[in-house]
Design a protein around this nucleic acid. Structure first.
Length: 484
RNA sequence: GGCCCCAUGGUCAAGCGGCUAAGACGGCGCCCUCUCAAGGCGCAAUCACGAGUUCGAUUCUCGUUGGGGUCACCA
């Protein structure tokens, strides 16, 4: 039988990386076995409805490369895939269980339940579980609102096997008679979930470990209907580092206060979707070899639930940054340029120097959003501190700079403006005067760029600036040195 | 608090009764080098604690401690 997994998010308008990782593992579990990945929108919570939130889900999945095979937008044989369009479907199932004596109507008021919860620390007292037929009829006649609860076993232990955590056992007495149908006739989340998963033929339920202890409740439902229980795969949680009021570093479940942890936030910060996917795949899972950089195809091929760990893992921005840089380094020339072009355009950089830009920038950025800052010297040139000309390691001083620039400017004016020619000119000058390259390169680069740090060396800086601008800046620098 | 789960360096982690306890990120140092990166080399840093089982425990069992999750007519 083909594996079928589903991603069942609530449209909240925000896709947390934790949810995204769950979706990723669901996707990988299915695709590794050539199975089917289903998208189901769980939008039954009217109060939390957010305009356009469903679109955020589609956009995120598309950008992340988690393409679903069935879903509200593309259809499939098990629709509808939006829970709000399935609302009428659940009640008959609940009533079936009532008729079979596996569930019952509970007429208890919310006030009673609340009071109950306050005094006894245990759950519902099963007050309505054994009402007589007369009592039930009386309540029905009186129009008392009711919910439908499932009769849970009173004694014994429920056990199931999770693919990640192994055998999990829960004492039955700890399980409440769970509500299946609410007073408004709508199903509870748990109930709808089981019905939908069964009706949609879901074989593997992949979800966060917060469901570990409530899974026996789900199983009780499958059993009541005589349905096959799916394979479970619970995932360790993703944690974040933050600082508390006292300034101590604390580690807790990932949330908004841990910076940008939404997928779209990360993308806006310059992280590549494929790098984010790569990184979160590694959060809580390790391949059998030591591979760290993966394409989606490789993830699909290598994914194995055996490598999923049980303990929570901390989201590490530094490692994400590194993964992102690796993906950039693995890009082809065209890929690199297509990502960089918007920034180049913005800075007015033409295609002429693309080849060189790719070469010098690729190993120097970890995110494309750093491009404007790296190239800022091209458009911004102010009077800089002359001490920049001093550099111990190159043995560069104000005097040496003055002398070398004076010598070099006329030669540069005659020079062909190519990388090779400029390099040859400068190294040739150094050799001729028995100087280290550094001594002559340093002042030229500083004078032209006006900043200490540039991507690429002297020749590259001069090429990027162009002959006129380079000479203009170098002359300004030289004049300032003369005056000092 | 009850119940469930988890526990290897700062972080991600390999390990599955015998190892000098992998690897990666980050940190530090050196090399390369016209700056900064990239790259190369190296260093520091981990089995939470206590009992067992065993010839031998990071590995198996129990307990302690710590962490997380969960206890709705919310999803």
């Amino acid at each position: 039988m083909k594996i079928r997994t589903r991603f069942a998010p609530s449209p909240t308008g925000f896709m947390h990386v934790g949810n995204l990782r769950t979706a990723l593992y669901e996707f990988l579990t299915a695709k590794h076995e050539d199975g089917t990945f289903v998208l189901r929108i769980e939008d039954t919570d009217q109060e939390r409805y957010v305009e356009g939130a469903t679109q955020v889900i589609y956009d995120t999945l598309k950008l992340a490369g988690l393409t679903h095979d069935e879903g509200p937008d593309i259809g499939g044989d098990f629709g509808p895939y939006v829970q709000s369009e399935r609302l009428g479907l659940y009640k008959p199932y609940a009533e079936q269980l009532v008729n079979e004596g596996k569930a019952y109507r509970c007429f208890c008021s919310k006030e009673r339940l609340e009071a109950l919860r306050e005094q006894s620390e245990s759950g519902y007292d099963r007050h309505c579980r054994d009402l007589s037929a007369e009592e039930i009829q009386k309540n029905l006649d009186a129009g008392t609102p009711y919910v439908i609860r499932q009769k849970m076993p009173l004694t014994g232990v429920s056990t199931y096997t999770d693919l990640v955590y192994g055998e999990i056992s829960i004492p039955n007495e700890d399980m409440d008679d769970q509500v299946l149908l609410k007073a408004d006739g709508f199903p509870t989340y748990n109930f709808a979930n089981v019905i939908d998963d069964h009706l949609m033929g879901i074989t593997h339920v992949v979800r966060g470990s917060e469901y570990l202890s409530s899974t026996p409740k789900y199983n009780a439902l499958y059993e009541a209907f005589g349905w096959e229980i799916p394979t479970y795969m619970h995932l360790p949680l993703i944690m974040g580092k933050s600082v508390d009021e006292e300034g101590n570093e604390v580690i807790s479940k990932l949330s908004k206060r841990h910076g940008s942890t939404g997928f779209m936030d990360l993308v806006n910060d310059g992280f590549l979707p494929e790098a984010i996917i790569n990184y979160i795949a590694l959060l809580g899972w390790a391949p059998s070899d030591n591979q760290e950089i993966f394409t989606m195809e490789e993830l699909i091929k290598n994914f194995d639930p055996k490598g999923i760990s049980k303990s929570p893992s901390v989201f590490d921005y530094d490692k994400l940054e590194w993964v992102n840089a690796e993906h950039i380094k693995n890009m082809s020339f065209d890929e690199f340029i297509s990502h960089a072009k918007p920034f180049f355009d913005q800075l007015g950089i033409g295609e002429a120097n693309y080849a060189m830009l790719e070469e010098i920038l690729k190993p120097r950025i970890t995110r494309f959003t750093q491009l404007p800052e790296k190239l800022e010297f091209l458009t911004k040139f102010e009077d800089f501190d002359l001490s920049l000309f001093e550099h111990k390691k190159s043995k560069s001083t104000l005097d040496s700079s003055k002398a070398i620039l004076t010598d070099i400017v006329p030669k540069l004016q005659q020079c062909d403006w190519t990388r090779e020619a400029i390099s040859e000119l400068l190294t040739g000058y150094a050799t001729e005067h028995e100087m280290k390259n550094a001594l002559v390169m340093w002042p030229v680069r500083i004078a032209a760029a006006g900043v200490a740090v540039t991507p690429g060396g002297c020749a590259e800086v001069l090429i990027l600036l162009g002959k006129d601008e380079s000479l203009r800046r170098i002359n300004i620098g030289l004049e300032r040195l003369m005056r000092s």
